[in-house]
Amino acid sequence: MSRDWLGDMINRDEKLKGMGKPLSREVLEGNVLDRTIKNAGYVPQWIAIQQDVRDRLGKIILLLETPSETDQLNQEIAEINILVKKYNSLCPTPMQKMLISLDQAKSQIKSWE
């Protein structure tokens, strides 16, 4: 390999898939970074927390329909509220949510969907 590594790369006769063909409209439109992040499967932390809160609220609603101890429910609500506070610190300001209360859990799950 010579010192001109870029020249060596250009001079290779490798044929790449799609070489010499025009780029598709998809590739040319939109934000390249956003598309790359989405294709890589990256999920921002605040969205992961949002999904976790939604799943936990669903479990609480199921527990509310069955006879269960309120201490256990209150402890679960407290843990969810810790996640809500973390979510609020990470998400964009217009997307911040209220803390969860046991009385309002059924109506509050709609805002987490």
Score class of each variant (00 low, 15 high):
residue 95 M to F: 13
residue 97 K to R: 09
residue 69 E to P: 09
residue 21 K to H: 15
residue 18 G to C: 10
residue 38 K to D: 08
residue 91 C to E: 05
residue 1 M to L: 14
residue 113 E to H: 03
residue 69 E to D: 14
residue 38 K to T: 05
residue 36 T to A: 15
residue 28 L to Y: 04
residue 26 E to L: 11
residue 2 S to Y: 13
residue 28 L to F: 10
residue 66 T to P: 05
residue 88 N to S: 04
residue 3 R to E: 15
residue 36 T to K: 12
residue 3 R to P: 09
residue 73 L to R: 01
residue 14 E to S: 11
residue 10 I to E: 13
residue 39 N to P: 01
residue 75 Q to I: 10
residue 8 D to V: 11
residue 30 G to P: 08
residue 95 M to I: 04
residue 70 T to E: 12
residue 47 I to Y: 07
residue 19 M to F: 11
residue 53 V to M: 04
residue 60 I to P: 00
residue 91 C to G: 01
residue 60 I to C: 06
residue 78 A to V: 02
residue 44 P to Q: 02
residue 109 I to L: 06
residue 7 G to S: 04
residue 87 Y to W: 01
residue 45 Q to A: 15
residue 50 Q to W: 03
residue 46 W to Q: 01
residue 20 G to N: 03
residue 15 K to I: 15
residue 12 R to F: 11
residue 27 V to I: 15
residue 7 G to C: 10
residue 23 L to M: 12
residue 70 T to L: 12
residue 8 D to N: 09
residue 59 K to C: 14
residue 89 S to F: 02
residue 111 S to A: 14
residue 39 N to R: 14
residue 55 D to E: 11
residue 11 N to E: 10
residue 63 L to D: 08
residue 64 L to V: 00
residue 85 K to H: 06
residue 67 P to T: 08
residue 99 L to M: 05
residue 90 L to P: 00
residue 30 G to S: 14
residue 20 G to T: 03
residue 62 L to T: 11
residue 45 Q to G: 09
residue 113 E to M: 09
residue 12 R to A: 11
residue 27 V to E: 11
residue 92 P to V: 07
residue 67 P to Q: 04
residue 97 K to I: 00
residue 9 M to P: 00
residue 79 E to A: 10
residue 13 D to R: 01
residue 47 I to K: 01
residue 112 W to M: 05
residue 112 W to C: 03
residue 95 M to S: 13
residue 107 S to M: 12
residue 62 L to C: 04
residue 1 M to N: 10
residue 113 E to F: 07
residue 3 R to S: 15
residue 82 I to R: 12
residue 59 K to I: 11
residue 40 A to G: 09
residue 24 S to M: 05
residue 2 S to G: 15
residue 6 L to M: 14
residue 59 K to G: 08
residue 102 L to C: 06
residue 84 V to F: 00
residue 48 A to W: 03
residue 28 L to C: 08
residue 31 N to M: 08
residue 46 W to F: 14
residue 5 W to I: 13
residue 88 N to A: 06
residue 90 L to S: 03
residue 97 K to H: 04
residue 29 E to H: 15
residue 56 R to I: 03
residue 72 Q to E: 10
residue 28 L to V: 11
residue 19 M to P: 07
residue 69 E to Y: 09
residue 72 Q to D: 12
residue 61 I to F: 01
residue 103 D to I: 07
residue 46 W to D: 00
residue 45 Q to H: 11
residue 79 E to H: 06
residue 20 G to V: 07
residue 7 G to N: 05
residue 100 I to A: 04
residue 67 P to A: 12
